[in-house]
Design a protein around this nucleic acid. Structure first.
Lengths: 211, 211
DNA sequence: TTCATAATGTTGCAATTGCAACATATATAT
DNA sequence: ATATATATGTTGCAATTGCAACATTATGAA
């Protein structure tokens, strides 16, 4: 993700954070931080660590909504952490900047570093939109096989390589693709047998023409 | 959607559009405008009319990615119109402003109306993120019934009413929910029979407690 | 190391969903 | 008004997928 403070000096960054009343927090591994972020129109920026947003329904089905790493953002508005069935869990100790959305929008400043900050934020929003769009494209495939292949296509395109390194484990992958883990495992077996892919740990090699 | 020109005078709006090298186009009903928007890092803002973004796979399955109305935006980056299987079709004659994303980001202006424009754009991006997130939440439900109920929940919450007015027809609804139309029709019948909903044309009444 | 916990792999069976093939109703154009 | 195209409703049947119940392997903590 683009750097939210790109082209802003350390001094101006501090000024800005003060004006926007930003808070920096560090959360411990395995901490459930859902409650700390609810009921406020917040934007969070991950400085370091890993955080996951998960939904778990009454049948026990887990959905991995997002996995956030350094540079990533989240928000009570578009990360659906307001809902009771959503949880935000710290995977690796994470440091997060929290800024009120209203503070950003209502800020009456015409300094160049504020304009730069808006540009950076816009760029990040753009990337986030791309990510959500990719996820949507994957979930709009009608079969397990096509969801897997679309996921591989997106990942392969993103890194420009026939090797896809899973950013999480297979259980989480199934939750991200919104399919049963066992059924996914079966389909991966078929894809291997039919010579489409090769799997070695979290590295998947695409053996077909990626066009 | 928020107005991209909110709090900007007509005079400054014209200046801004000139500086950003914006183009305004009007497209006729049923026109396929995919080709006209490809291969450029564009942001489009719908001034009037209705436009749909659709994906159709080799099996003939249609997915309704987005339906855009006045105020809405789209982009080659997050509306996946780059892909060969995607089409952008004009449903009702539409007027659209096209702006290069790079022109927005690289613009070196510190006028208040440029800052206001950035704020407005940020607000629209925020809304777009919310929409994509809603769609994701719906597609992450594991059954036809739960997709329908989640769709109703979102719509009902949005308008604060037990009445849900479909913004498109049932065929399109199935394509938006990524399910077979006939199977959806069957499930809607069950929901009616079990007393959960009442359907009258495009108006659906939710008879259960919406909590 | 050893134990406990979590992740992965496998497969029979049942349930859900998609598909096909209709009939009917509605909308739109000439 | 009439015809043509599009949308909706219905249902049997087949295919896909989810679920359950395991075995096996990997990971991590004490």
């Amino acid at each position: 993700m683009a750097d939210i403070f790109a082209n802003i000096s350390e001094k101006n960054k501090c000024k800005l954070l003060k004006i926007l009343e930003a808070n920096t927090h560090t959360f411990r591994k395995n901490e459930d931080i859902t409650g700390k972020l609810k009921n406020e129109n917040l934007i969070g920026i991950i400085l370091s660590g890993v955080v996951e947003i998960i939904r778990e329904d009454y049948d026990g089905n887990r959905t991995l909504i997002e996995e956030l790493e350094a540079g990533d953002i989240f928000s009570s508005k578009f990360s659906s952490i307001e809902n009771v069935d959503h949880t935000m869990v710290v995977i690796d100790e994470a440091t997060v900047i929290l800024i009120g959305y209203n503070e950003i929008i209502n800020c009456d400043l015409d300094k160049d570093y504020y304009i730069q900050f808006m540009k950076n934020l816009l760029a990040i929003f753009m990337e986030k939109l791309q990510e959500k769009n990719e996820h949507l494209e994957i979930l709009s495939r009608r079969s397990i096989r096509n969801k897997l292949l679309e996921y591989f296509r997106v990942m392969s395109k993103k890194h420009g390589s026939r090797f896809v390194y899973l950013p999480f484990n297979f259980t989480d992958l199934a939750d991200y693709l919104v399919i049963d883990r066992c059924a996914m495992s079966r389909e991966l077996k078929y894809l291997k047998e039919e010579g489409f892919i090769e799997v070695k740990g979290k590295r998947i090699t695409l053996l077909y023409d990626r066009r």
